[in-house]
Design a binder for these strands. Sequence first.
DNA 1: GGAGGGAGGGAGAACGTTCGGTCTCGTCGT
DNA 2: ACGACGAGACCGAACGTTCTCCCTCCCTCC
Lengths: 207, 207
Amino acid sequence: MSTGTQGGSISEARARLLDTATRIFYAEGIHSVGVDRIIAEAQVTRATLYRHFKGKEELILSYLQQADHGIRGQVAAIRAQGLPAADTVRAVSRSIADGIQSPGFRGCAFLNAAAEYPDPAHPVHQAVLAHRQWFLDTATQLLGAADCAPADAAGRHFVMLRDGAMAAGCLFDPTLIRETFLGGVEGILRTGTAPVPEPDAPATPPA
Amino acid sequence: MSTGTQGGSISEARARLLDTATRIFYAEGIHSVGVDRIIAEAQVTRATLYRHFKGKEELILSYLQQADHGIRGQVAAIRAQGLPAADTVRAVSRSIADGIQSPGFRGCAFLNAAAEYPDPAHPVHQAVLAHRQWFLDTATQLLGAADCAPADAAGRHFVMLRDGAMAAGCLFDPTLIRETFLGGVEGILRTGTAPVPEPDAPATPPA
DNA sequence: GGAGGGAGGGAGAACGTTCGGTCTCGTCGT
DNA sequence: ACGACGAGACCGAACGTTCTCCCTCCCTCC
């Protein structure tokens, strides 16, 4: 089993293809890179790509699916440590903040993909929505377990802060983003969330 | 002082071109729409486009510049009302929240553009950075005037919340996003910002 | 007042490149 | 022999860009 290519296991060329696509799509965007570029850097031929994927779109979907699995695994690993709920939230937040500070950081793969695929009916957009729904549910559950006010509102607040941190992480100083994000998370954990009862009255949009 | 061009108003075809580009770029992204599409919907010919813009890139830059002017004007109009500082922050926030709830909302034009142009050296990316720097400075100034803790941290917190709201505004229920965002802003105004003394824990980046 | 000219614009052909995708054929390990 | 892969030709379409030709305003000069 030295050379690894096994009959039943997954193709080694396919893995190279997906890894290369992941790296390039994340670093440079999706629309702006062509399949020629991917097959060249993956050192496979065009035929091999279309042997494993129906087309570029399926490659994109696989890229997002791989990212989704990675993030879910990361969160699951943290939850498996069995920390107190608030500390689990902190650990997840630190994991996010570490990602933002890491060298190749280029924002949230899903937010970036959504920016390139605004059509809600598009499979790529739907993959983004699915991932985000899972993350919101997870955050809400975690914050609820940490005795945060209305868990729904706390979860939404947490996700909003994370989205902002991920979006700005490659546009500002990552160190300050980290600081701001972790500070905001502590605020959520401390106060539950803003106990604003939502007056729902203003109705005078100045514009 | 003869202008060389016809007196008074600038080319009407150019305005149609820029308006069309703005609408389509914002709604569908930049890389995924070609100049053919834009000239068709603007009802001009290819030659007219290249008479007014050096190329697609200059059109993109003009699109972002127009958006930048629009937002700066909106903020300036609010500041000109001479409200108390905290209420000015609230008014700006409400303006942002209203935008998120408006029908054609598709996120922040600048965040979307940055997702498509990750290269920091690219003119489009730099236009995004310039706009964001102005916005951070403005937010910091406003929150400082509203007696918020360290104004820098409050400004960063505000911008992070705004970024999250803008990013998620077209991926979740805009009503809940509005509620969460305005609630978060109230939290910033109330507590200044998270008075976390920054423990500076070395931690152990797990991956 | 009339002629000229320059600029803005419409219409469309054409350029070379790149796109995503399909195809055939040769090769190699099992 | 079979399946996976490499090498590469090939396709139609779309890309951004440049080009020529002609029309129509409006300003200016005679």
